[in-house]
Amino acid sequence: MKKANVAINKDLCKKCAICVHFCPKEVFTIDQDGYPLISRLDKCTGCRLCFLRCPDFALEVETELDD
């Protein structure tokens, strides 16, 4: 099982919410300012689809093997 950590850079984020809607595990929710909020990090599998789909280089996913 992979352990992943997601980091959002709010200086680059344009609030398009692609990461929120296309995460297969629904890790993100939207906060009151419209930015993505990492609310269920324990469900993250480290597939990095949010990183690949982010148009603004605002998301980074770090995965580490943990067995």
Partner: peptide, 17 residues
């Protein structure tokens, strides 16, 4: 960065790929 493109524009995704 940030780029000049509109929020959600595909150009950034293509650049990253």
């Amino acid at each position: 960065l940030p780029s000049i493109w509109c929020p959600g524009c595909g150009n950034g995704v293509a650049l990253k790929a």
